[in-house]
């Protein structure tokens, strides 16, 4: 995000340069000379060298932390990996009494609730981003961006409480009976209207990831040079057609934002636990209760008495860890590729 912000500033500088179409040669040469001076000094100056090795060290610490975490979880889940093997991923029973564990219902719950959240949040977030980056006048844009980012700062337990006291009763009394009335044979909407369940979890998560997706998407859209917009408008495109062009320029950035949002949804614990119903069960219906990986760890770890029980919970953590890392890595790569494209352009 930082790089994106600085990008926007550099665009402003360009515009201030008065040309608007190309970067003035003076700016380019100034940055070039700054760079070469910096590299020359870092070889000579001892302070710089210490500074550089310290920052290297800090960067390495982050790597070490990630690997140590993965190693510890791998070690902790050894027992369960040996006992269940691949069957752990496909097993559907979770029975602490018989010491028999399968993680599929939790994986299913995490994936479905997160995807549902994405499905609900994505159109909304992109809409917000387009409005803020393309259409909104300054006096609306500022407070509105602030409000959107404020949503991201609300602790998840607050979302959870809101879910339990407002969202769930509303779903139970107003929404779910209507869904059932429309069709009680359609597999997505079947069963009893508990209020608690996959639908509630998806909606809560959608609200929680909306600020992430919309604020990054807005930054991505703002990073697209104004020349694109101007060119489109100059060729006679309408506002809508110009926006479509901007969107297609920013699509990989928006995809990156989406994946970051998905990462948040996958790892969310408290709010989901409070509304998902906590039943390890695989059901096609969104009205039925489910369970998620993060929730089961939070719920059961403190009282996990047998070694295999603890180990199985740690293996779930390992699966969750892998999923989040993959999602985040993908998001970074995509954001990186889109920003690089516009830097070179």
């Amino acid at each position: 995000m930082l790089t994106l912000h600085s990008d926007r500033e550099s665009i402003d500088i360009k515009q201030a340069g008065g040309d608007g179409n190309s970067v003035p040669p003076a700016v380019v040469s100034a940055t070039k000379s700054m760079k070469s001076e910096k590299s020359r000094r870092s070889v000579v100056n001892i302070g710089d060298r210490i500074f550089r090795s310290t920052t290297w060290f800090f960067a390495f610490v982050v790597f070490a932390l990630v690997f140590l975490m993965a190693y510890e979880m791998l070690k902790g889940s050894q027992l369960s990996i040996e006992k269940f093997g691949f069957k752990f991923l496909t097993g559907t029973t979770w029975d602490p009494v018989a010491d028999n564990y399968g993680a599929l219902p939790f994986i299913f719950g995490t994936v479905v609730s997160s995807l549902l959240a994405l499905l609900l949040a994505l159109p909304l977030s992109v809409g917000v981003a387009i409005f803020l980056a393309e259409l909104a006048p300054r006096w609306i844009e500022r407070p509105m961006s602030f409000m959107v980012e404020l949503l991201a700062a609300i602790p998840s337990i607050v979302y959870g409480l809101w879910g339990v006291f407002v969202l769930v009763p509303w779903l139970r009394t107003s929404v779910e009976p209507k869904l059932l009335a429309i069709s009680d044979t359609f597999p997505l909407f079947k069963g009893a209207p508990y209020g608690f369940g996959m639908l509630a979890a998806g909606i809560i998560l959608a609200i929680m990831i909306l600020p992430i997706i919309s604020s990054i998407s807005r930054d991505v859209l703002s990073a697209i040079p104004d020349t694109q917009r101007e060119a489109a408008l100059a060729l006679g495109a309408t506002r809508w057609e110009a926006t479509k062009i901007i969107l297609s320029d920013g699509r990989s950035g928006i995809l990156g934002a989406t994946l970051l949002g998905l990462g948040r949804a996958v790892g969310e614990t408290m709010a989901v636990t409070m509304v998902i119903g906590n039943r390890p069960e695989i059901s096609a219906s969104l009205l039925d209760p489910g369970y998620s990986m993060a929730s089961v760890i939070a719920n059961e770890f403190a009282e996990a008495t047998t070694a295999l029980y603890t180990s199985s919970l740690i293996e779930i953590a390992l699966i969750l860890f892998c999923v989040t890392i993959v999602l985040n890595a993908a998001a970074r790569l995509i954001v990186w590729s889109v920003t690089k494209k516009f830097k070179t352009a």
């Binding site: 029975d95 602490p96 009494v97 769930v168 139970r172 906590n278």
Partner: peptide, 27 residues
């Protein structure tokens, strides 16, 4: 069987006494 967590044949789970009480109070 018996234990601190079991494989429940029916129902919804709430976190803590307040979670269960919340489920009951609301439905």
């Amino acid at each position: 069987g018996k234990g601190t967590s079991v494989n429940w044949p029916a129902g919804l789970g709430g976190k803590g006494n307040e979670g269960v009480a919340g489920l009951v109070k609301q439905s």
